[in-house]
Design a protein around this nucleic acid. Structure first.
Length: 426
RNA sequence: GUGAGCGUAGCUCAGCUGGUGGUAGCACCGGGUUGUGGCCUCGGAGGUCGUGGGUUCAAGUCCCAUCGCUCACCCCA
C-alpha cells in the first residue's frame, strides 16, 4: 500500500484550484474595498491562547485540538480558528496605538480533530476578518453586509440569521431563566438536551429533534432578556442592516460554539451542503482582548467563512464563474534543428509576458497539435524543416484555423514582436 | 466517541441465485491523415477485485476480521 494523506486532510488538485483562487481573489478584493488589510499569523500557538479565548469547556478545546509537546516541553496547539491568533498579534504588537480602529483579515488553514464528513475536514481553510476598537452597531451591520456581498459576488444564494447573546450584565439572568424553564420540561426532552441543560443550557435550544423543538416553543428568548445597552445595540444593528437592504431573520435560539461571543452573532446559512449549513459565521467579542491580557474596553467583532464549503457551493451553483487557464501560444518544433531554434524563442516570449508552451520530447506534429488543443492554446507556431528551409514559420489561429507565414530571418526580437502582436489582437 | 453505507482499470462504474475479470463510459497511447488539434473510426496499453483468514470442487460474489473511504449523529466555518 502506498502512503495516503491523513484522514480529514485533503489535497486541492489542479482542476479544483481555479475555484479556490476565484474565491480568494473575490474576497481579497472586497476586503480591500472595505478598508481591511491582511495579517498573516502563525499556525502554531501556545495551547493556553486557545484555552483562554475559545473557552476551556468548549468541544473545540476539550476534544478537537491538535496539541503536542514540543522539544522544549511546551504545550503547542495547531490553531483551530483564527481570531485568537490575530488578537494575540494585535495585543503583542500594540496595533491599537498605530490606528485606533484596526480592520484585519487573514486566510489560511485551521485544524480540528473531528470525524470528517461533507464540508468538514480536519484541516480546513477559513477567511476571517476582525475589527478592533469600535463597538458601534453600524459596524456590525457593515461587517455582516460585507460577508453578504462576498457571497453575492460569488453568485451564491444563502440566508442570514442574526441574534444577540447579550453581555456579562444580562446573560447570567437569561441563563437562569432558561435553566428554570428547562427544569419544567425535563421529562419531555431528549437525553442530549437533559445533559446540556447542565453543561451548556444555551445550546439546548439548538437541538435538531423536532420533538424537543415543540417543547421549546415557549422557552424564554435571550433577546427578551437583554439589558438596555444590549437591547439598543441590537435594535440599531437591525436598523442599520435595513439601511443596507441586507435581508435577515432573527433566530433567538442561535448560539455559538465559542465562549467569547457577546451581543451580535450571525450565521450565513445554506441548505445545499448536507449537515453543514453554515458557510460563514461570527459575532461580537467585546471582552476578549482584555481576557487575553490586552487593553480594557477594547471592543471587537469578526467572522469567518469556510472555504471548503464555499468551494463546494461554488462548484455546484456557479462553476462557470471560475476563469479557465488558457495558453497564448504553443510552439510546435519538428526536428532537432527546429527545437534548438524554438527553445530560446519560447523562453524569450515568456520573459516578454506571454503564456507559452512547447513540447520538449520531439513528438509528432499531430501529437503536438493535440497538446496545444488540450492546453487551450489560441495560436500554434509551427516550426519544422520545411519552414526552416523556406525561412518562414507558420502561425495557426486555433479558433479560425487561419494560417499565416512569419519570416524567420533577422533578429529573434522581430519574430517575438509579431507573435506578441498576433496574440494581443485576440 | 456512536451509527449506517461503500471499497473492481488513472476516474465513473457493470458484474444476476458462487462457475474463465468487462468489445462499458471518460482519460491515456498509436494508426486511419508519411507535417496540422477538437468530431469520427480502428487498434493498444492498463487489475495483487482494499488486506488477511474461512466456507466450497470453485469466491469479485457467501462468512469473519482488519484497514480505508463516504455520509449521518455530535460539533462547527
Amino acid at each position: 500500500m502506498s502512503i495516503q494523506a491523513l484522514k480529514g486532510f485533503k489535497d486541492i488538485l489542479p482542476d479544483e484550484v481555479g475555484v479556490w483562487q476565484h474565491i480568494e481573489a473575490t474576497a481579497r478584493d472586497i476586503f480591500q474595498r472595505f478598508g481591511f488589510t491582511e495579517i498573516r499569523v502563525p499556525i502554531l500557538e501556545k495551547t493556553e491562547l486557545f484555552a483562554r479565548s475559545i473557552g476551556e469547556a468548549t468541544d473545540i478545546v476539550e476534544k478537537e485540538m491538535y496539541c503536542f509537546t514540543d522539544r522544549n516541553g511546551d504545550s503547542i496547539t495547531m490553531r483551530p480558528e483564527g481570531t485568537a491568533s490575530v488578537l494575540r498579534a494585535f495585543i503583542e504588537h500594540g496595533l491599537q496605538a498605530k490606528l485606533p480602529v484596526q480592520r484585519l483579515y487573514t486566510i489560511g488553514p485551521m485544524f480540528r480533530h473531528e470525524r470528517p464528513q461533507k464540508g468538514r475536514l480536519r484541516q480546513f481553510h477559513q477567511m476571517s476578518v476582525e475589527v478592533l476598537g469600535l463597538d458601534h452597531p453600524r459596524l456590525d451591520a457593515e461587517l455582516i453586509a460585507m460577508g453578504w456581498l462576498i457571497l453575492e459576488e460569488l453568485g451564491l444564494t444563502t440566508s442570514l440569521q442574526i441574534n444577540s447573546l447579550g453581555c456579562p450584565a444580562c446573560r447570567p439572568g437569561y441563563k437562569e431563566a432558561l435553566v428554570n424553564f428547562l427544569a419544567t420540561r425535563k421529562e419531555h426532552i431528549c437525553e442530549d438536551c437533559q445533559r446540556r441543560s447542565q453543561t451548556n443550557p444555551l445550546r439546548v435550544l439548538d437541538c435538531k429533534s423536532s420533538h424537543c423543538q415543540e417543547q421549546y416553543v415557549n422557552a424564554p428568548a435571550i433577546i427578551d432578556h437583554l439589558c438596555p445597552g444590549c437591547g439598543e445595540h441590537f435594535t440599531q444593528t437591525k436598523a442599520s442592516l435595513d439601511l443596507l437592504a441586507v435581508p435577515y431573520t432573527v433566530n433567538p435560539f442561535m448560539v455559538r460554539g465559542l465562549d467569547y461571543y457577546t451581543r451580535t452573532t450571525f450565521e450565513l446559512i445554506t441548505d445545499a451542503l448536507g449537515a453543514q449549513s453554515a458557510v460563514g459565521a461570527g459575532g461580537r467579542y467585546d471582552g476578549l482582548v482584555e481576557q487575553l491580557g490586552g487593553a480594557k474596553n477594547m471592543p471587537g467583532i469578526g467572522f469567518a467563512m469556510g472555504m471548503e464549503r464555499l468551494a463546494l457551493l461554488l462548484s455546484q451553483q456557479n462553476a462557470d464563474a471560475c476563469p479557465e487557464t488558457a495558453t497564448d501560444l504553443f510552439v510546435a518544433a519538428l526536428g532537432e534543428e527546429a527545437a534548438v531554434r524554438a527553445f530560446p524563442l519560447v523562453h524569450l516570449l515568456r520573459r516578454k509576458g506571454l503564456q507559452v508552451a512547447m513540447d520538449l520530447e520531439g513528438k509528432s506534429l499531430k501529437s503536438q497539435m493535440k497538446q496545444a488543443d488540450r492546453a487551450k492554446a489560441r495560436f500554434v507556431l509551427i516550426l519544422g524543416e520545411e519552414e526552416l528551409a523556406k525561412g518562414e514559420a507558420v502561425l495557426r489561429d486555433m479558433t479560425s484555423k487561419e494560417q499565416q507565414q512569419l519570416p524567420l530571418a533577422g533578429a529573434q526580437e522581430a519574430l517575438c514582436a509579431m507573435l506578441i502582436a498576433a496574440v494581443a489582437q485576440r
